[in-house]
Design a binder for these strands. Structure first.
Lengths: 224, 224
DNA sequence: TCTGTAAAGGTCATTTCGACCTCATTATGG
DNA sequence: CCATAATGAGGTCGAAATGACCTTTACAGA
Protein backbone atom coordinates (compact mmCIF):
# COMPACT_ATOMS: atom_id res chain seq x y z
CA UNK A 1 0.00 0.00 0.00
CA UNK A 2 2.42 2.70 1.16
CA UNK A 3 5.30 3.27 -1.21
CA UNK A 4 6.87 6.63 -0.53
CA UNK A 5 6.51 9.27 2.12
CA UNK A 6 6.03 12.25 -0.14
CA UNK A 7 2.47 12.16 -1.32
CA UNK A 8 -0.27 14.76 -1.50
CA UNK A 9 -2.61 14.87 1.47
CA UNK A 10 -6.11 16.01 0.68
CA UNK A 11 -8.28 17.36 3.46
CA UNK A 12 -10.72 14.77 4.79
CA UNK A 13 -14.27 15.46 5.89
CA UNK A 14 -17.40 13.55 6.76
CA UNK A 15 -20.90 14.57 5.65
CA UNK A 16 -24.12 13.12 7.00
CA UNK A 17 -27.49 12.86 5.28
CA UNK A 18 -29.88 12.86 8.24
CA UNK A 19 -33.33 11.46 7.44
CA UNK A 20 -36.48 11.43 9.50
CA UNK A 21 -40.23 11.12 8.97
CA UNK A 22 -42.48 14.02 9.94
CA UNK A 23 -46.19 14.01 9.12
CA UNK A 24 -45.79 10.89 6.96
CA UNK A 25 -43.23 12.74 4.86
CA UNK A 26 -39.56 11.92 4.38
CA UNK A 27 -37.36 14.83 5.42
CA UNK A 28 -33.64 15.50 5.63
CA UNK A 29 -31.65 17.99 7.64
CA UNK A 30 -29.86 20.88 5.93
CA UNK A 31 -27.74 23.68 7.33
CA UNK A 32 -27.31 27.12 5.87
CA UNK A 33 -23.64 27.86 5.38
CA UNK A 34 -22.31 31.01 7.01
CA UNK A 35 -18.87 30.82 5.39
CA UNK A 36 -17.49 30.90 1.87
CA UNK A 37 -17.61 29.09 -0.42
CA UNK A 38 -21.30 28.55 -1.07
CA UNK A 39 -22.13 31.08 1.63
CA UNK A 40 -25.89 31.13 2.40
CA UNK A 41 -26.36 27.92 0.41
CA UNK A 42 -27.92 24.92 2.09
CA UNK A 43 -25.54 22.06 2.81
CA UNK A 44 -25.35 18.74 4.60
CA UNK A 45 -24.07 18.69 8.18
CA UNK A 46 -20.41 17.72 8.16
CA UNK A 47 -16.88 18.72 8.96
CA UNK A 48 -13.27 17.74 9.10
CA UNK A 49 -12.12 14.45 10.53
CA UNK A 50 -9.91 15.01 13.54
CA UNK A 51 -6.55 13.47 14.15
CA UNK A 52 -6.88 9.93 15.51
CA UNK A 53 -10.62 10.06 15.08
CA UNK A 54 -12.37 7.13 13.43
CA UNK A 55 -14.55 7.98 10.44
CA UNK A 56 -17.74 6.68 12.06
CA UNK A 57 -16.86 8.54 15.24
CA UNK A 58 -16.40 11.74 13.24
CA UNK A 59 -19.79 11.26 11.63
CA UNK A 60 -21.35 10.70 15.05
CA UNK A 61 -19.74 13.86 16.32
CA UNK A 62 -21.00 15.94 13.41
CA UNK A 63 -24.43 14.44 13.91
CA UNK A 64 -24.59 15.29 17.59
CA UNK A 65 -22.97 18.69 17.12
CA UNK A 66 -25.63 19.73 14.65
CA UNK A 67 -28.59 17.94 16.16
CA UNK A 68 -27.60 17.10 19.75
CA UNK A 69 -29.17 13.70 19.18
CA UNK A 70 -28.00 10.83 21.37
CA UNK A 71 -26.02 8.43 19.22
CA UNK A 72 -27.53 5.25 20.67
CA UNK A 73 -30.93 5.94 19.22
CA UNK A 74 -29.79 6.84 15.74
CA UNK A 75 -28.97 4.47 12.88
CA UNK A 76 -25.76 5.61 11.20
CA UNK A 77 -23.96 3.98 8.29
CA UNK A 78 -21.28 4.88 5.79
CA UNK A 79 -22.64 5.66 2.33
CA UNK A 80 -19.91 6.46 -0.19
CA UNK A 81 -16.74 8.50 -0.46
CA UNK A 82 -16.73 11.48 -2.78
CA UNK A 83 -13.36 12.63 -4.02
CA UNK A 84 -13.70 14.49 -7.31
CA UNK A 85 -10.67 16.81 -7.46
CA UNK A 86 -12.71 20.01 -7.88
CA UNK A 87 -15.65 19.23 -5.63
CA UNK A 88 -14.41 21.95 -3.29
CA UNK A 89 -13.29 25.07 -5.18
CA UNK A 90 -10.63 25.99 -2.62
CA UNK A 91 -8.59 22.84 -2.36
CA UNK A 92 -8.77 19.09 -2.61
CA UNK A 93 -11.30 17.84 -0.06
CA UNK A 94 -12.34 14.20 0.07
CA UNK A 95 -15.55 13.54 1.94
CA UNK A 96 -16.76 10.27 3.41
CA UNK A 97 -20.54 10.53 3.22
CA UNK A 98 -22.80 8.81 5.74
CA UNK A 99 -26.52 8.61 6.24
CA UNK A 100 -28.51 8.57 9.46
CA UNK A 101 -32.07 7.56 10.30
CA UNK A 102 -33.67 9.39 13.22
CA UNK A 103 -36.90 8.37 14.94
CA UNK A 104 -39.45 11.20 14.76
CA UNK A 105 -39.85 11.28 18.54
CA UNK A 106 -36.26 12.51 18.77
CA UNK A 107 -36.63 15.33 16.24
CA UNK A 108 -37.59 18.00 18.81
CA UNK A 109 -34.15 17.55 20.29
CA UNK A 110 -32.66 18.38 16.93
CA UNK A 111 -34.78 21.50 16.67
CA UNK A 112 -33.61 22.72 20.06
CA UNK A 113 -29.99 22.51 19.04
CA UNK A 114 -30.36 24.75 16.02
CA UNK A 115 -29.29 27.96 17.72
CA UNK A 116 -25.79 28.14 16.28
CA UNK A 117 -26.34 27.81 12.55
CA UNK A 118 -29.64 27.94 10.72
CA UNK A 119 -30.95 24.40 10.49
CA UNK A 120 -34.05 23.07 8.75
CA UNK A 121 -35.80 19.84 7.86
CA UNK A 122 -36.52 19.76 4.14
CA UNK A 123 -39.20 17.59 2.58
CA UNK A 124 -37.58 15.24 0.07
CA UNK A 125 -40.71 15.08 -2.07
CA UNK A 126 -41.93 18.67 -2.08
CA UNK A 127 -39.06 20.97 -1.13
CA UNK A 128 -35.86 19.32 -2.28
CA UNK A 129 -36.48 19.10 -6.04
CA UNK A 130 -34.93 22.12 -7.70
CA UNK A 131 -33.08 23.21 -4.58
CA UNK A 132 -29.40 23.86 -5.24
CA UNK A 133 -27.11 22.58 -2.52
CA UNK A 134 -23.50 23.44 -1.77
CA UNK A 135 -20.62 21.45 -3.26
CA UNK A 136 -21.71 18.05 -4.65
CA UNK A 137 -24.25 17.58 -1.90
CA UNK A 138 -27.10 17.08 -4.34
CA UNK A 139 -25.27 14.06 -5.65
CA UNK A 140 -24.72 12.77 -2.12
CA UNK A 141 -28.40 13.19 -1.28
CA UNK A 142 -29.41 11.42 -4.48
CA UNK A 143 -27.20 8.44 -3.65
CA UNK A 144 -28.49 8.33 -0.07
CA UNK A 145 -32.06 8.23 -1.36
CA UNK A 146 -31.21 5.40 -3.75
CA UNK A 147 -29.57 3.52 -0.91
CA UNK A 148 -32.42 3.71 1.59
CA UNK A 149 -35.02 2.99 -1.08
CA UNK A 150 -33.15 -0.10 -2.15
CA UNK A 151 -32.30 -1.26 1.34
CA UNK A 152 -35.85 -0.87 2.55
CA UNK A 153 -36.82 -4.09 0.76
CA UNK A 154 -34.26 -6.39 2.30
CA UNK A 155 -32.94 -4.74 5.46
CA UNK A 156 -34.90 -3.70 8.55
CA UNK A 157 -34.14 -0.01 8.17
CA UNK A 158 -37.83 0.94 8.04
CA UNK A 159 -38.01 0.24 11.76
CA UNK A 160 -35.40 2.91 12.40
CA UNK A 161 -37.83 5.63 11.38
CA UNK A 162 -40.87 4.75 13.48
CA UNK A 163 -41.29 5.64 17.15
CA UNK A 164 -40.24 2.97 19.64
CA UNK A 165 -43.88 1.94 19.84
CA UNK A 166 -45.76 1.94 16.57
CA UNK A 167 -48.69 0.54 14.63
CA UNK A 168 -48.63 -1.31 11.32
CA UNK A 169 -50.15 1.71 9.61
CA UNK A 170 -47.42 3.95 10.92
CA UNK A 171 -44.78 1.57 9.62
CA UNK A 172 -46.53 1.48 6.26
CA UNK A 173 -46.51 5.27 6.24
CA UNK A 174 -42.73 5.17 6.63
CA UNK A 175 -42.37 2.76 3.71
CA UNK A 176 -44.62 4.91 1.55
CA UNK A 177 -42.78 8.08 2.45
CA UNK A 178 -39.42 6.55 1.54
CA UNK A 179 -40.51 4.80 -1.64
CA UNK A 180 -42.89 7.49 -2.81
CA UNK A 181 -45.46 4.86 -3.71
CA UNK A 182 -48.47 3.46 -1.88
CA UNK A 183 -48.76 -0.06 -0.49
CA UNK A 184 -51.90 -2.16 -0.19
CA UNK A 185 -52.72 -2.02 3.55
CA UNK A 186 -53.78 -5.67 3.77
CA UNK A 187 -50.76 -7.01 1.87
CA UNK A 188 -48.40 -4.82 3.86
CA UNK A 189 -49.91 -6.17 7.07
CA UNK A 190 -49.36 -9.74 5.90
CA UNK A 191 -45.76 -8.97 5.01
CA UNK A 192 -45.30 -7.39 8.44
CA UNK A 193 -46.76 -10.48 10.15
CA UNK A 194 -44.16 -12.62 8.42
CA UNK A 195 -41.39 -10.43 9.83
CA UNK A 196 -42.74 -11.10 13.31
CA UNK A 197 -41.64 -14.74 13.28
CA UNK A 198 -38.16 -13.71 14.35
CA UNK A 199 -38.89 -12.30 17.76
CA UNK A 200 -37.42 -8.83 17.41
CA UNK A 201 -40.84 -7.22 17.60
CA UNK A 202 -43.61 -7.93 20.07
CA UNK A 203 -47.09 -6.69 20.77
CA UNK A 204 -47.16 -3.86 23.26
CA UNK A 205 -50.00 -3.33 25.71
CA UNK A 206 -52.74 -0.88 24.79
CA UNK A 207 -54.23 0.31 21.55
CA UNK A 208 -53.83 3.49 19.56
CA UNK A 209 -56.82 5.68 18.79
CA UNK A 210 -56.95 6.87 15.21
CA UNK A 211 -60.53 8.00 14.59
CA UNK A 212 -61.58 4.49 13.66
CA UNK A 213 -60.94 1.04 15.05
CA UNK A 214 -57.97 1.22 17.46
CA UNK A 215 -54.74 -0.27 16.18
CA UNK A 216 -52.49 -2.80 17.87
CA UNK A 217 -49.26 -1.26 19.10
CA UNK A 218 -45.91 -2.99 18.59
CA UNK A 219 -42.46 -2.40 20.04
CA UNK A 220 -38.95 -3.82 19.86
CA UNK A 221 -38.04 -6.59 22.24
CA UNK A 222 -34.44 -5.52 22.72
CA UNK A 223 -35.68 -2.40 24.49
CA UNK A 224 -33.16 -0.24 22.63
CA UNK B 1 -18.53 21.53 5.53
CA UNK B 2 -15.26 23.42 5.81
CA UNK B 3 -14.93 25.46 8.94
CA UNK B 4 -11.30 26.25 9.51
CA UNK B 5 -8.16 25.88 7.51
CA UNK B 6 -6.02 24.20 10.12
CA UNK B 7 -7.05 20.60 10.18
CA UNK B 8 -5.15 17.32 10.19
CA UNK B 9 -4.58 15.76 6.79
CA UNK B 10 -4.36 12.01 6.80
CA UNK B 11 -2.69 10.27 3.89
CA UNK B 12 -5.18 8.90 1.38
CA UNK B 13 -4.85 5.61 -0.48
CA UNK B 14 -6.97 3.30 -2.59
CA UNK B 15 -6.91 -0.48 -2.32
CA UNK B 16 -8.47 -2.87 -4.81
CA UNK B 17 -9.77 -6.38 -4.20
CA UNK B 18 -9.37 -7.97 -7.63
CA UNK B 19 -11.49 -11.07 -8.17
CA UNK B 20 -11.49 -13.58 -10.99
CA UNK B 21 -12.57 -17.17 -11.61
CA UNK B 22 -9.95 -19.76 -12.50
CA UNK B 23 -10.81 -23.45 -12.77
CA UNK B 24 -14.30 -22.81 -11.38
CA UNK B 25 -12.71 -21.32 -8.28
CA UNK B 26 -12.99 -17.76 -6.97
CA UNK B 27 -9.59 -16.14 -6.66
CA UNK B 28 -8.25 -12.75 -5.65
CA UNK B 29 -5.00 -11.00 -6.41
CA UNK B 30 -2.45 -10.40 -3.65
CA UNK B 31 0.95 -8.77 -3.74
CA UNK B 32 3.87 -9.51 -1.47
CA UNK B 33 5.07 -6.34 0.19
CA UNK B 34 8.73 -5.49 -0.25
CA UNK B 35 8.70 -2.54 2.17
CA UNK B 36 8.02 -2.05 5.86
CA UNK B 37 5.64 -2.24 7.56
CA UNK B 38 4.31 -5.75 7.00
CA UNK B 39 7.30 -6.53 4.82
CA UNK B 40 6.93 -9.92 3.06
CA UNK B 41 3.26 -10.05 4.04
CA UNK B 42 0.61 -10.39 1.36
CA UNK B 43 -1.46 -7.30 0.73
CA UNK B 44 -4.05 -5.92 -1.65
CA UNK B 45 -2.87 -3.90 -4.63
CA UNK B 46 -3.15 -0.22 -3.82
CA UNK B 47 -1.37 3.05 -3.35
CA UNK B 48 -1.62 6.74 -2.68
CA UNK B 49 -4.13 8.94 -4.43
CA UNK B 50 -2.37 11.56 -6.51
CA UNK B 51 -3.08 15.24 -6.49
CA UNK B 52 -6.09 16.09 -8.64
CA UNK B 53 -6.76 12.42 -9.25
CA UNK B 54 -10.27 11.13 -8.86
CA UNK B 55 -10.69 8.17 -6.49
CA UNK B 56 -12.02 5.86 -9.19
CA UNK B 57 -9.23 6.93 -11.50
CA UNK B 58 -6.68 6.16 -8.78
CA UNK B 59 -8.18 2.70 -8.33
CA UNK B 60 -8.01 2.14 -12.10
CA UNK B 61 -4.38 3.19 -12.11
CA UNK B 62 -3.47 0.85 -9.28
CA UNK B 63 -5.33 -1.93 -11.04
CA UNK B 64 -3.52 -1.46 -14.32
CA UNK B 65 -0.16 -0.86 -12.67
CA UNK B 66 -0.33 -4.18 -10.86
CA UNK B 67 -2.12 -6.20 -13.49
CA UNK B 68 -1.71 -4.26 -16.73
CA UNK B 69 -5.36 -5.03 -17.43
CA UNK B 70 -7.24 -2.74 -19.80
CA UNK B 71 -9.77 -0.78 -17.76
CA UNK B 72 -12.62 -1.11 -20.27
CA UNK B 73 -12.97 -4.82 -19.72
CA UNK B 74 -12.94 -4.75 -15.96
CA UNK B 75 -15.82 -4.05 -13.60
CA UNK B 76 -14.66 -1.67 -10.88
CA UNK B 77 -16.70 -0.23 -8.03
CA UNK B 78 -16.08 1.53 -4.74
CA UNK B 79 -16.56 -0.71 -1.71
CA UNK B 80 -16.04 1.10 1.58
CA UNK B 81 -13.64 3.54 3.19
CA UNK B 82 -11.47 2.30 6.03
CA UNK B 83 -10.15 4.95 8.39
CA UNK B 84 -9.39 3.43 11.77
CA UNK B 85 -6.69 5.69 13.28
CA UNK B 86 -4.16 2.90 13.85
CA UNK B 87 -4.76 0.80 10.74
CA UNK B 88 -1.33 1.85 9.51
CA UNK B 89 1.27 1.73 12.31
CA UNK B 90 3.34 4.61 10.84
CA UNK B 91 0.80 7.35 10.47
CA UNK B 92 -2.85 8.03 9.80
CA UNK B 93 -3.75 6.52 6.44
CA UNK B 94 -7.34 6.45 5.20
CA UNK B 95 -8.01 3.98 2.41
CA UNK B 96 -10.88 3.97 -0.04
CA UNK B 97 -11.35 0.29 -0.86
CA UNK B 98 -12.66 -0.86 -4.23
CA UNK B 99 -13.35 -4.22 -5.78
CA UNK B 100 -12.83 -5.38 -9.34
CA UNK B 101 -14.16 -8.31 -11.36
CA UNK B 102 -11.89 -9.60 -14.12
CA UNK B 103 -12.91 -12.02 -16.87
CA UNK B 104 -10.74 -15.14 -16.78
CA UNK B 105 -9.66 -14.67 -20.38
CA UNK B 106 -7.80 -11.54 -19.31
CA UNK B 107 -5.95 -13.14 -16.44
CA UNK B 108 -2.87 -14.13 -18.50
CA UNK B 109 -2.25 -10.42 -19.00
CA UNK B 110 -2.20 -9.97 -15.25
CA UNK B 111 0.31 -12.78 -14.91
CA UNK B 112 2.64 -11.19 -17.44
CA UNK B 113 2.78 -7.95 -15.50
CA UNK B 114 3.99 -9.55 -12.32
CA UNK B 115 7.68 -8.92 -12.88
CA UNK B 116 8.03 -5.99 -10.52
CA UNK B 117 6.61 -7.29 -7.28
CA UNK B 118 5.61 -10.83 -6.48
CA UNK B 119 1.98 -11.26 -7.43
CA UNK B 120 -0.30 -14.24 -6.96
CA UNK B 121 -3.90 -15.33 -7.37
CA UNK B 122 -5.16 -16.81 -4.11
CA UNK B 123 -8.10 -19.17 -3.90
CA UNK B 124 -10.73 -17.64 -1.66
CA UNK B 125 -12.03 -21.03 -0.56
CA UNK B 126 -8.87 -23.05 -0.10
CA UNK B 127 -5.93 -20.68 0.36
CA UNK B 128 -7.25 -17.53 1.95
CA UNK B 129 -8.62 -18.92 5.25
CA UNK B 130 -5.97 -18.57 7.91
CA UNK B 131 -3.75 -16.37 5.77
CA UNK B 132 -2.70 -13.19 7.56
CA UNK B 133 -2.74 -10.12 5.37
CA UNK B 134 -1.09 -6.74 5.88
CA UNK B 135 -2.88 -3.86 7.61
CA UNK B 136 -6.66 -4.39 7.85
CA UNK B 137 -6.78 -6.06 4.47
CA UNK B 138 -8.42 -9.20 5.84
CA UNK B 139 -11.32 -7.02 6.89
CA UNK B 140 -11.46 -5.41 3.44
CA UNK B 141 -11.47 -8.79 1.73
CA UNK B 142 -14.20 -10.04 4.04
CA UNK B 143 -16.40 -7.06 3.20
CA UNK B 144 -15.73 -7.43 -0.52
CA UNK B 145 -16.80 -11.07 -0.34
CA UNK B 146 -19.99 -10.14 1.49
CA UNK B 147 -20.69 -7.50 -1.12
CA UNK B 148 -20.30 -9.67 -4.21
CA UNK B 149 -22.18 -12.57 -2.61
CA UNK B 150 -25.07 -10.29 -1.78
CA UNK B 151 -25.04 -8.43 -5.06
CA UNK B 152 -24.94 -11.60 -7.11
CA UNK B 153 -28.65 -12.15 -6.44
CA UNK B 154 -29.96 -8.83 -7.68
CA UNK B 155 -27.28 -7.28 -9.89
CA UNK B 156 -25.76 -8.68 -13.08
CA UNK B 157 -22.26 -8.94 -11.66
CA UNK B 158 -22.04 -12.67 -12.37
CA UNK B 159 -21.68 -11.84 -16.06
CA UNK B 160 -18.53 -9.87 -15.31
CA UNK B 161 -16.66 -13.05 -14.42
CA UNK B 162 -17.41 -15.22 -17.43
CA UNK B 163 -15.60 -15.00 -20.78
CA UNK B 164 -17.22 -12.81 -23.40
CA UNK B 165 -18.77 -15.95 -24.86
CA UNK B 166 -19.98 -18.46 -22.31
CA UNK B 167 -22.35 -21.35 -21.67
CA UNK B 168 -25.01 -21.63 -19.00
CA UNK B 169 -22.91 -24.15 -17.12
CA UNK B 170 -19.96 -21.80 -17.08
CA UNK B 171 -22.15 -19.05 -15.67
CA UNK B 172 -23.48 -21.44 -13.06
CA UNK B 173 -19.91 -22.32 -12.16
CA UNK B 174 -19.25 -18.64 -11.48
CA UNK B 175 -22.30 -18.39 -9.22
CA UNK B 176 -21.27 -21.51 -7.34
CA UNK B 177 -17.70 -20.30 -6.93
CA UNK B 178 -18.84 -16.98 -5.50
CA UNK B 179 -21.56 -18.29 -3.22
CA UNK B 180 -19.77 -21.45 -2.20
CA UNK B 181 -22.95 -23.46 -2.68
CA UNK B 182 -24.25 -25.56 -5.55
CA UNK B 183 -27.21 -24.72 -7.74
CA UNK B 184 -29.62 -27.12 -9.41
CA UNK B 185 -28.54 -27.09 -13.08
CA UNK B 186 -32.09 -27.20 -14.45
CA UNK B 187 -33.42 -24.48 -12.15
CA UNK B 188 -30.42 -22.30 -12.82
CA UNK B 189 -30.99 -22.70 -16.54
CA UNK B 190 -34.61 -21.60 -16.17
CA UNK B 191 -33.56 -18.57 -14.14
CA UNK B 192 -31.02 -17.72 -16.82
CA UNK B 193 -33.64 -18.00 -19.55
CA UNK B 194 -35.78 -15.43 -17.73
CA UNK B 195 -32.85 -13.00 -17.77
CA UNK B 196 -32.72 -13.35 -21.53
CA UNK B 197 -35.99 -11.48 -22.04
CA UNK B 198 -34.18 -8.19 -21.74
CA UNK B 199 -31.96 -8.37 -24.77
CA UNK B 200 -28.55 -7.88 -23.17
CA UNK B 201 -27.55 -11.44 -23.98
CA UNK B 202 -27.98 -13.32 -27.22
CA UNK B 203 -27.19 -16.74 -28.58
CA UNK B 204 -23.82 -16.92 -30.29
CA UNK B 205 -23.11 -19.17 -33.26
CA UNK B 206 -21.51 -22.53 -32.58
CA UNK B 207 -21.54 -24.97 -29.72
CA UNK B 208 -19.02 -25.78 -27.05
CA UNK B 209 -17.65 -29.30 -26.65
CA UNK B 210 -17.52 -30.51 -23.08
CA UNK B 211 -17.27 -34.27 -23.24
CA UNK B 212 -21.02 -34.66 -23.46
CA UNK B 213 -23.81 -32.97 -25.38
CA UNK B 214 -22.46 -29.66 -26.76
CA UNK B 215 -23.68 -26.53 -24.97
CA UNK B 216 -25.21 -23.43 -26.51
CA UNK B 217 -22.87 -20.46 -26.40
CA UNK B 218 -24.09 -16.99 -25.38
CA UNK B 219 -22.58 -13.54 -25.63
CA UNK B 220 -23.38 -9.93 -24.76
CA UNK B 221 -25.16 -7.85 -27.35
CA UNK B 222 -23.45 -4.59 -26.51
CA UNK B 223 -20.21 -6.07 -27.78
CA UNK B 224 -18.31 -4.50 -24.89
C1' DT C 1 -22.97 -50.56 -29.81
C1' DC C 2 -23.39 -49.68 -25.20
C1' DT C 3 -22.68 -46.51 -21.36
C1' DG C 4 -21.77 -42.34 -18.95
C1' DT C 5 -22.35 -37.46 -18.83
C1' DA C 6 -24.02 -33.13 -19.37
C1' DA C 7 -27.40 -30.18 -22.04
C1' DA C 8 -32.13 -28.90 -22.45
C1' DG C 9 -36.63 -28.89 -21.17
C1' DG C 10 -40.66 -30.29 -18.56
C1' DT C 11 -43.78 -31.50 -14.26
C1' DC C 12 -45.49 -30.77 -9.69
C1' DA C 13 -45.99 -28.97 -5.05
C1' DT C 14 -44.92 -25.03 -2.32
C1' DT C 15 -44.35 -20.26 -1.55
C1' DT C 16 -44.91 -15.48 -2.54
C1' DC C 17 -47.35 -11.51 -4.13
C1' DG C 18 -50.90 -8.38 -5.91
C1' DA C 19 -55.78 -7.51 -6.22
C1' DC C 20 -59.74 -7.73 -3.81
C1' DC C 21 -63.20 -9.15 -0.38
C1' DT C 22 -65.42 -9.63 4.34
C1' DC C 23 -65.87 -8.52 9.00
C1' DA C 24 -64.68 -5.82 13.41
C1' DT C 25 -64.43 -1.70 15.94
C1' DT C 26 -64.35 2.90 16.66
C1' DA C 27 -66.08 8.05 15.89
C1' DT C 28 -69.46 11.00 14.02
C1' DG C 29 -73.76 12.94 12.25
C1' DG C 30 -78.55 12.95 11.65
C1' DC D 1 -80.15 5.64 18.91
C1' DC D 2 -78.99 4.10 14.56
C1' DA D 3 -76.77 4.63 9.96
C1' DT D 4 -72.48 5.55 7.90
C1' DA D 5 -67.70 6.48 7.17
C1' DA D 6 -63.07 5.09 8.17
C1' DT D 7 -59.61 2.22 9.52
C1' DG D 8 -57.93 -2.31 11.55
C1' DA D 9 -57.53 -7.22 10.88
C1' DG D 10 -57.89 -11.19 8.42
C1' DG D 11 -58.98 -14.21 4.43
C1' DT D 12 -59.51 -15.78 -0.70
C1' DC D 13 -57.99 -16.29 -5.36
C1' DG D 14 -55.00 -16.44 -9.40
C1' DA D 15 -50.43 -15.33 -11.31
C1' DA D 16 -45.66 -15.82 -10.87
C1' DA D 17 -41.53 -17.66 -8.87
C1' DT D 18 -38.99 -21.41 -6.70
C1' DG D 19 -37.09 -26.02 -5.33
C1' DA D 20 -37.08 -30.99 -6.09
C1' DC D 21 -37.07 -34.21 -9.52
C1' DC D 22 -37.81 -36.57 -14.03
C1' DT D 23 -37.28 -37.39 -19.22
C1' DT D 24 -35.12 -36.79 -23.48
C1' DT D 25 -31.25 -35.43 -26.41
C1' DA D 26 -26.60 -35.39 -28.06
C1' DC D 27 -22.09 -36.10 -27.64
C1' DA D 28 -17.37 -38.93 -26.10
C1' DG D 29 -15.16 -42.96 -25.11
C1' DA D 30 -14.74 -47.87 -24.06
Amino acid sequence: MARKDDHPRPALTVDVVVFTILDSDLKLLLIRRDLEPYRDSWALPGGFVREDEDLMRAAERELTEETSLPREHVFLEQLYTFGAPARDPRERVVSVAHYALVRPELVPLARAASDAAETRWYSVASELPGLELAFDHEQIVELALERIRGKLDYAPIGFELVPRTFTVSELRGVFEAIKGTSYDPANFRRRFRRMLTDKVIEEAPGKRQTGARPATVYRFTAGG
